[in-house]
Design a protein around this nucleic acid. Structure first.
Lengths: 135, 135
DNA sequence: CTATCTGTTATAGTACACATATAACAGTTA
DNA sequence: TAACTGTTATATGTGTACTATAACAGATAG
């Protein structure tokens, strides 16, 4: 998988790395057991510092997306098998909170319930139709 | 309307002020023409600096939520009447982008399209059912 | 007209997050 | 055993958030 960093945006680099890896997990481009590049090599490829990549990896580890195996490095975990975890429940509650926030923003500008759900459905159709297996 | 600031969260104070005023506009608690407290009095009530409130007001002004009238102060604007503005279009695109982001996050953890739409519908029902007129 | 209050801008200081740089460490493995 | 992994420690520079003090132009109540 290829990561691309935008240095001109407000989103921190380590979050960009984290988001793109999560996206790859979502699309199936990264499957459980797949190895991730080492923090040093990825940092070199992206032109960023080692600690920036390490911060992204540590976050992915804390979120359950990857596991570390000593020298072997970082591997994609089977996060989908922990759907009933307390962590997974918190994750869904956080998504619900953010959805409510977006709905409120739209409503403040005159948007309707149907318009919000239309946008949500369109985006869901787009996201959940993507199912890549190999690269 | 009463604002409450959480000093222990990561969300900046000026964003908390801005969000709560937008929420009040969405619920109808604040209607077009309603006056907002002055930056100095609100800062005093909340126990924050004047510039922090001013930063929130400036953002609300740039977003079209409020208008300024010299000494009279800040008033709630009729932002719902500018639904076909370029700014309104950007706002909807930004919401769509964030919805896609949330859908991707849920999918990465094994969530389905139906589960995402179920959460979105539940939140939409909750948000769009709130319609306060007076305070 | 004039004093007052409004948002706004300028300057300065503190605190924290982000990113960098260099260095060293424990654990795993070829 | 040597090499590579993630991890941690320390230090530096930059940008944002918040505070503090001060002054300004514009609108308005008296």
């Amino acid at each position: 998988m290829i990561l691309s960093i935008d240095f001109d945006t407000q989103e921190p680099i380590y979050r960009q790395i984290r988001s793109q890896i999560v996206s790859a997990v979502a699309s199936g481009e990264l499957a459980p057991g797949d190895p991730l590049p080492s923090v040093r090599s990825l940092a070199g490829d992206l032109g960023v510092n080692m600690h920036t990549v390490n911060k992204a990896y540590a976050m992915l580890r804390d979120e359950g997306y990857v596991t570390m195996r000593g020298r072997s490095g970082a591997y994609v975990a089977d996060v989908k098998r922990s759907a009933s975890t307390a962590r997974a429940q918190e994750h869904r509650e956080q998504i619900a909170t953010e959805l409510a926030r977006l709905a409120t923003e739209l409503k403040a500008r005159g948007g309707t319930r149907e318009e919000f759900l239309a946008i949500a459905t369109a985006q869901a159709d787009h996201v959940f139709s993507q199912n890549k297996e190999g690269e």
